[in-house]
Computed example of a mutant assay.
Amino acid sequence: MLSVALVVLALMGCAHSHNDPDPMFTDYDALSEEFIDHINSLDTSWKAGQNFPGKKEEDVRHLCGTLDPEPGDSLEADFDDDPPKIDYDTLPASFDARTKWPKCNSSISLIGDQDNCGNCWAFGSSYAISDRYCINKMGLLQLSVQYITSCCSRAYRYNGCSGARIATAYSCWQKYGVPTGGQFGSNYGCQPYTIKDCPLKSESNGVTFPWCTGKSSKPSTSYTPPCSECCDVGYSKKLNDDRHFAAKVYQLRRNNAPSIQAEIYARGPVTLTFSVYQDYLSYKSGVYKYKTGKYVGRHAVKIIGWGVENNMPYWLGTNCWGQHWGNNGFFKFLRGSNHCGIESYGYAGIPKS
């Protein structure tokens, strides 16, 4: 079965997985300074640091909301029948989409923030898709993560903030179309993002959000804002006039890093998924390779390039946990060995003109 196979591949790529004998698992919270210090005491190719001050692991586990594909489900797209015609041996040792398409830098460099919603599947997809409009000279635009989270997930019987597959976003883009929408508070587009992190009680000033439980900063991970088929008041278009569609969507070749590189080099950023373990939550710099911690969940990200650092090949990606996470929202991840399943399941697409 496909989903089982992907999980097995992910575990093979992250040695020890759920049964790592490291006693730090039970002694300390994964976001504690003690656990971070423990990571940095190991022989690693990367450095850990505090990304979620004032929070515990239970407050952020739901951010990894990507679900594995279901075997035989027609929602999953086929592999690309017309991949880029590139000799893999000619691919550069390093590549950054921001350098190749400098006019699209503001789109490619954009860092999202899920806040209190497990919709990495929507962010990782929407941001990669949006880049391709600019790369294809269709202008700078940002597709609505809000609409994908609330409406696309409902169309495929998912609860967006509780998780979905990246195929949900890509299929919805192709079949129904997705309107524009910017980040929280941006007022950009038809449906900007509306989900905000739950404030601590001492910082709330009496303001409440429906997705917050009211108990400190602990989120309600099951709440997904209702789907709206209208644009925000004041936007110049009706939603149906603002829909953007895909000419085609497709899965990326599995366990084939060079083919993924060729796709990025020729067409732009892609969406990849991988298994997250406790140590990744505190990544700050360097090339991430799993070292310690239990399984947290499956995550989706945008990959914009690759390179080599200290003889370690890596993927260059943008996360969707805000600019305070990692290296200002960016990260490097071991490339070429399907580490934590990162090369086992991915998507891309071409916008319809």
Rank of each mutant, 00 (worst) to 15 (best):
D29A: 02
G177C: 14
Y193Q: 07
S45H: 10
H38C: 02
S153I: 09
G124S: 02
S337K: 12
N40E: 01
N187S: 14
P225Y: 12
S236Y: 15
S17L: 06
G293K: 07
V233P: 06
T271P: 00
D241C: 08
C117F: 10
N256E: 07
G13R: 07
L9R: 08
M1L: 14
I111A: 03
K302H: 01
H244Y: 12
G317M: 13
Y88L: 09
G297P: 10
S275K: 07
S107Y: 02
G336F: 09
A122R: 00
A30C: 13
G341N: 09
W321T: 01
A257D: 11
W321E: 01
W306Q: 05
T26N: 13
T149C: 06
L91I: 04
F79R: 12
N119R: 08
V7H: 09
A155F: 10
K215A: 15
Y88H: 07
W325C: 00
G182R: 10
T149S: 10
M24H: 11
I350K: 10
D73N: 15
V296I: 14
A48L: 02
V287D: 06
P226G: 02
G49H: 08
I129K: 03
N328V: 04
P83Q: 01
N311E: 15
D232P: 03
Y265H: 10
T99D: 14
G293I: 04
D82Q: 13
W321P: 02
D37F: 02
L91K: 01
T194H: 03
G206D: 07
Y288V: 08
N51E: 03
A10E: 10
Q261S: 06
T44Q: 04
N105P: 00
Y290P: 00
C320H: 05
P199R: 14
D81Y: 02
R254S: 12
G182I: 09
L110V: 04
D20Q: 08
D43V: 05
F52G: 02
P84M: 07
A155S: 11
P69C: 12
P225M: 12
G349C: 11
A257H: 07
G346T: 05
T213Q: 03
S17Y: 14
A97Y: 09
A247M: 09
G317I: 01
L91P: 01
C14Y: 06
D73W: 10
Q191K: 12
S204D: 15
C14G: 14
L239F: 09
S344C: 02
A5I: 09
M138G: 13
G297Y: 06
H18A: 13
E309A: 13
S109C: 02
M12R: 14
Y347L: 15
Q323A: 11
L91Q: 03
N40F: 06
M1K: 14
K294W: 01
C198W: 06
P69D: 05
I129H: 00
D20S: 13
T44V: 04
A169T: 05
E263I: 00
G336Q: 11
T149I: 00
A97M: 08
D197S: 11
A247I: 01
C212A: 08
W46Y: 14
V8C: 07
M12W: 09
L42Q: 12
H38W: 14
S45M: 06
Y188G: 05
S337N: 14
H299F: 05
T99C: 02
R267V: 01
